[in-house]
């Protein structure tokens, strides 16, 4: 049986997720033995189509990205959204929370019209996506587990338990009780609660669980002395995208 042909692509992103994917030595070399990497612009010059699995990083932020993403879809058997930018819009969607004209003017002043953009969207708003690897950045272990599943033709992990569950399992001191604005109660787990384990509140990078009770979470946070303004702001670092913004 021939090796599966995999490829990496990126749109608006920091490329941190691709870097995380090559950041572990042994696993990467083992992976190289099992797959053929046919496109990976950051690391290799060759480029071939006819792909089994495409990992797509980044958000879609302008018209000209759409045909490129569609071309990737047409040439790939499986398309996986890699990281928060691709899965949920990530930090790129913050710009959707303010009038686009203002955002462009802040950066480019009177030359703003030279820089076309439209509201940020995750890739599944443009093409069909077969699986998601969450996080900003992706979690290494979660990535490896998912790659195994994908190569076996299975579904990626949905992670519908909030970060709090992993926190409790690891007996990490709850940051809410310390008055920090932690998004753990409504955020998709799967990262091992890495931020709280370092005394840092969860910023919600893996996206919200399927049925987040945002109001209840707001109440919990407010009980711990945070203002609604603070909480709203914190909640929109990674979770600004709303489908109605692109209607």
């Amino acid at each position: 049986m021939s090796k599966p042909r995999i490829a990496f692509f990126d749109f608006a992103s920091c490329e941190g997720c691709q870097l995380e994917a090559i950041n572990f030595v042994e696993e990467f070399l083992v992976l190289l033995g099992h797959v053929d990497i046919v496109q990976f612009r950051e690391a290799i010059t060759e480029a071939e189509w006819d792909i089994d699995v495409s990992f797509v990083e980044g958000s879609i932020t302008r018209e000209q990205d759409i045909p490129r993403l569609k071309e990737i879809r047409e040439n790939s058997k499986v398309v996986i959204a890699l990281g928060a930018c691709a899965c949920t819009g990530g930090v790129n969607a913050i710009k959707n929370t303010r009038p686009l004209e203002d955002v462009r003017a802040d950066v480019y002043g009177d030359k703003k019209d030279w820089f076309p953009t439209f509201p940020t969207r995750p890739i599944d708003q443009v093409v069909k996506v077969d699986g998601y690897i969450y996080g900003c950045p992706i979690d290494r272990n979660d990535f490896l587990k998912n790659v195994q599943l994908i190569l076996q033709g299975k579904k990626t992990l949905r992670h519908n338990d909030p970060v709090c569950v992993e926190c409790r399992l690891a007996e990490i001191e709850c940051l809410l009780t310390l008055g920090k604005p932690c998004m753990g109660p409504i955020t998709r787990g799967g990262c091992g609660a890495i931020d709280p384990s370092y005394g840092h509140p969860c910023t919600g990078c893996r996206g919200l669980v399927d049925d987040p009770n945002e109001n209840a979470a707001m109440d919990v946070l407010a009980e711990h002395g945070l203002t609604v303004e603070d909480i709203r702001s914190y909640m929109t670092i990674f979770n600004s995208f709303r489908p109605e913004d692109i209607q």
């Binding site: 941190g16 802040d106 950066v107």
Partner: peptide, 24 residues
């Protein structure tokens, strides 16, 4: 490359959120 408009994203945000966003 697609522009990402970071400076525009920072306006109005709290001091403790800034480095969180710009590292991205």
């Amino acid at each position: 490359e697609a522009p990402r408009f970071f400076e525009g994203m920072l306006r109005g945000r709290a001091h403790y959120e800034i480095r969180e966003i710009v590292s991205r």
